[in-house]
Design a protein around this nucleic acid. Structure first.
Length: 479
DNA sequence: TGAAATGTTGGGGCG
DNA sequence: ACGCCCCAACATTTC
């Protein structure tokens, strides 16, 4: 259908799918032939207490800037507005005479609620409202147990996903994105002050990350060529580059899980050695889907334990210990290395995330929510579904959770996954001169380094305390 | 996607 | 040569 000059435009409401490739809403909008108005609304009220954290806001600015550049390379651009989502969508629609709003659905509780108000507004204003599949491989409603319920255990969920046919190939970017005759008002990224100025704490982030879909693809290609074949073992090695580090790009939709799935399979099909690595890597993508599945069906998991037995669990308040954990001064090198990597780069290796989370919840016996909040503010890949599900998993109160008696020994974990201490030395430079054999527990060899603390808790004692407390708690529940 | 405690086995030192 | 003990090394159980 050839558009005439007065064809009403279509608004593509961008949310966390900040790309033009494999974007069903954009593709469909472009396909109508009508002018397209790409619109991003920054509404820091939408998500309640889970409004984007500092590291996330820093990342967002780069993503929006890159998306705008991608759109401009096709004769379009990104319109930026800040404020009430539903009002602004309605406002831009009436100003431009738009026929409808196309968008990608989301599964975070507040985002899903916002979609409903937008749909109601569209109905009221006579706008077409089209919602497309979200940034997951398998839509949470499409994967169900035999009795029609949601899954609560990963492995059967995983099998059900693999048994699902019809995972589509990613969509190419639209050839043509027709601009409207005139553009509506746009704010500028600068106005939004998403990045810090005084003090400018973001140097570490700048040194480690660049946003945008091109950068996401570069990461993926590097990972496939360099690390996928060894992924099964190397993914647990923070001292090596064994993971794809795609998490922030996936969170902001600078690459879609479908693109990653598709490209990984294509690559692995032509590289025999990739067999084991491919399975293990794709499985991690399904873990991501599992988190979204859980958040969609159990939206309370952001605030309360998935397992209600943990409602009254006697977590301990200890501001001093919590502070030591945050700044990486617990005296356990692998824990401190992880926490400092997080603070400096906005990211932490997954194995180390498990270690530091286990340490907070079991050694320090501090509430998983306190940890989740800290991660939320400091991670560039902060993601409500992954963050909530994963913290609960470690704490033992989540779906398919690690049993309460599974307590990581930070010394053994360090020796096993950072055997020569390269990772620890990189992030805890003050102990760089400690020999390999003592690097994960210097005090055991009588080594005391100025400025680096002795362990704030003794592993054996902390372990016994956690086991005892869990046991008492369970006994109390049975009474 | 643990770790520690406990149990079992088998080789070697030694009287 | 033999029995005994010690203790890795590995397996199983328990938290």
């Amino acid at each position: 259908m050839p558009p005439s000059s007065d064809t009403p435009p279509v608004i593509v409401w961008f949310r966390q799918e900040l790309r033009i490739v494999d974007h069903p809403a954009l593709t469909e909008a472009a396909k109508t032939g009508a002018p397209v108005i790409p619109l991003f609304i920054f509404n820091d009220k939408t998500a309640g207490s889970w409004t984007p954290g500092a590291a996330s806001r820093w990342w967002l600015e780069g993503s929006l800037s890159a998306l705008d550049a991608d759109l401009r390379s096709r004769g379009s651009r990104l319109i930026l507005r800040r404020g009430n989502t539903q009002q602004l969508l309605g406002c831009v629609a009436s100003q431009t005479g738009a026929a409808g709003i196309y968008f990608t659905r989301h599964y975070e509780p507040h985002q899903a609620a916002e979609e409903l108000t937008v749909a109601a507004m569209c109905e009221h204003q006579g706008l077409i409202c089209r919602r497309f599949g979200g940034g997951v491989l398998f839509e949470p409603d499409a994967i169900r147990t035999k009795t029609g319920g949601p899954f609560r255990v990963f492995t059967p969920f995983y099998k059900a996903c693999l048994a699902t046919k019809g995972l589509k190939d990613p969509l190419p970017a639209p050839d043509k994105i027709t601009p409207p005759p005139s553009w509506p008002d746009s704010e500028t990224l600068k106005d939004w002050c998403l990045r810090p100025t005084a003090p400018d704490w973001a140097k570490g982030l700048r040194d480690h990350w660049q946003q945008g879909t091109n950068e996401a693809s570069t990461h993926l290609e590097f990972f496939l060529g360099d690390a996928l074949a060894a992924y099964l073992e190397d993914r647990d090695r923070p001292d090596r580059v064994g993971t794809s580090a795609l998490s922030p790009y996936l969170h902001f939709g600078e690459i879609s899980p479908r693109q990653v799935w598709h490209r990984t399979n294509l690559w692995a099909d032509s590289h025999v050695a990739a067999g084991q690595g491919r399975i293990a890597y794709l499985r991690e993508l399904v873990w991501r889907d599992f988190s979204y599945h859980l958040l969609h069906h159990f939206p309370h998991i952001t605030e309360a334990p998935f397992n209600p037995a943990f409602e009254d669990f006697p977590w301990r308040d200890d501001a001093q210990a919590f502070r030591a954990w945050q700044i990486g001064m617990t005296g356990y090198p692998i824990v401190d290395a992880g926490m400092r990597q997080l603070w400096q780069t906005g990211w932490m290796h997954n194995r180390v995330r498990m270690i530091v989370a286990s340490f907070l919840t079991k050694h320090l016996f501090i509430h998983w929510q306190d940890g989740a909040r800290w991660f939320w503010d400091t991670l560039v890949d902060a993601d409500l579904a992954n963050n909530s599900a994963s913290w609960q998993w470690v704490a033992g109160c989540g779906a398919d959770a690690a049993p309460y008696f599974r307590i990581f020994n930070p010394i053994l974990q360090g020796r096993k996954f950072d055997p020569s201490g390269d990772y620890v030395r990189k992030w805890v430079p003050e102990i760089a001169d400690v020999p390999d054999r003592a690097i994960h527990a210097p005090w055991e060899s009588g080594i005391q380094v100025d400025g680096y603390p002795r362990p704030i808790v003794d592993h054996r004692i902390a372990r016994q305390r956690a086991l005892g407390a869990y046991k008492d708690f369970r006994a109390k529940g049975e009474r």
